[in-house]
C-alpha cells in the first residue's frame, strides 16, 4: 500500500486519501465564459498518463487538505508532494 506524503501530516497509508484527478494547474477549471465544449472536456475527459503524473489527492482521514502529488503511475514511486498554489508549505 502506497505511502502518500501529506504536507501537513507526513507519510500516511493510501487508504487515508482519495484521488481527485489531475493537478488543477495543468487541468484548470474553465472560466465561466468558456465555450461548452471546453467545459465538456474539463468534466469528462482525463489524460491517462503512463509514467510521471501530477495528481490531486485529499487527506480525508487526516487533515482534509487537498494537495498535489508527483507520482509515477507505473512504479507508484512518489517523487514529491506540495500544497496547492498560494498555500504555505508547512514543512
Amino acid at each position: 500500500m502506497m505511502l502518500i506524503p501529506c504536507p501537513w501530516c507526513g507519510p500516511r497509508p493510501r487508504v487515508e486519501f482519495t484521488y481527485g484527478g489531475p493537478d488543477p494547474s495543468t487541468h484548470p477549471r474553465p472560466a465561466d465564459t468558456a465555450p461548452l465544449d471546453v467545459w465538456t472536456r474539463y468534466v469528462y475527459e482525463r489524460d491517462n498518463p503512463k509514467g510521471e503524473a501530477r495528481e490531486l489527492w485529499r487527506h480525508g482521514a487526516g487533515c482534509r487538505q487537498w494537495f498535489v502529488v508527483e507520482r509515477d503511475t507505473v512504479t507508484h514511486a512518489v517523487a514529491a508532494s506540495e500544497p496547492l498554489p498560494g498555500v504555505e508549505d508547512p514543512r
Binding site: L56, W66, L84
Partner: peptide, 9 residues
C-alpha cells in the same frame, strides 16, 4: 472543501 481549496482559495 474541494470547491473552497481547489477552485476558490
Amino acid at each position: 472543501e474541494h470547491a473552497l481549496q481547489v477552485y476558490w482559495p
